[in-house]
Computed example of a mutant assay.
Amino acid sequence: MTSLTRFALPLLASVSVLSMTAAHAEPTQELIDAAKAEGTLTTIALPHNWCGYGDVIAGFKAKYGLDVNELNPNAGSADELEAIKANMGNTGPQAPDVIDVGLSFGPAAKDQGLIQPYKVSVWDSIPDDAKDAEGYWYGDYYGVLAFGVNKDIIPYAPTSFADLMDSAYANSIAIPGDPRTGNSTMMTVYAAGVAQGAAAGGDALNAGITYFKDLKENGNYVPVNGNSQNLAQGTTPIYFDWDYNLLAMRDTLAGNPPVEVVVPSDAVVAGVYVQAISAYAPHPNAAKLWMEYIYSDEGQTLWLKGYCHPIRFNDMAARGVIPQDLMDKLPPAENYAKAVFPTLDEQAAAKSAIADNWGKEMGVN
Rank of each mutant, 00 (worst) to 15 (best):
V98R: 10
S228N: 10
L302N: 09
E260W: 01
F341S: 02
V263E: 07
I238V: 14
A279Q: 12
F60T: 12
V144Q: 05
Q233C: 05
Y169T: 02
I153C: 10
G135T: 07
S77I: 04
L41P: 01
E30I: 09
T91D: 13
S125G: 06
Y221Q: 03
T185A: 15
T185W: 07
M187A: 02
G76L: 08
H48Y: 11
P93W: 04
A75F: 15
Y280R: 01
G202A: 15
T43E: 04
L12K: 11
P331V: 12
G177A: 09
D163G: 08
A191V: 06
K131Y: 13
V194R: 02
S184P: 15
R250S: 12
G92H: 12
M187L: 11
I354Q: 07
T43F: 13
E82Y: 05
P257W: 01
D251M: 02
N206Q: 00
D128Y: 08
G113M: 03
T236C: 06
L164T: 03
H24A: 07
T5S: 14
I84V: 08
N72V: 11
A281L: 04
A109W: 10
M20Q: 13
D132G: 10
N230C: 10
I277T: 03
V269S: 01
W137N: 04
A25N: 00
P176T: 08
M362F: 05
D214S: 11
D251K: 13
L302M: 15
M249K: 00
L164V: 05
D251Y: 06
L11I: 12
K119F: 02
K110H: 14
A254N: 15
L302P: 15
I84R: 06
D166Y: 12
E134W: 07
V122Y: 10
E26H: 07
V268G: 02
T343W: 00
A109Y: 09
K213I: 05
N365W: 10
D166K: 11
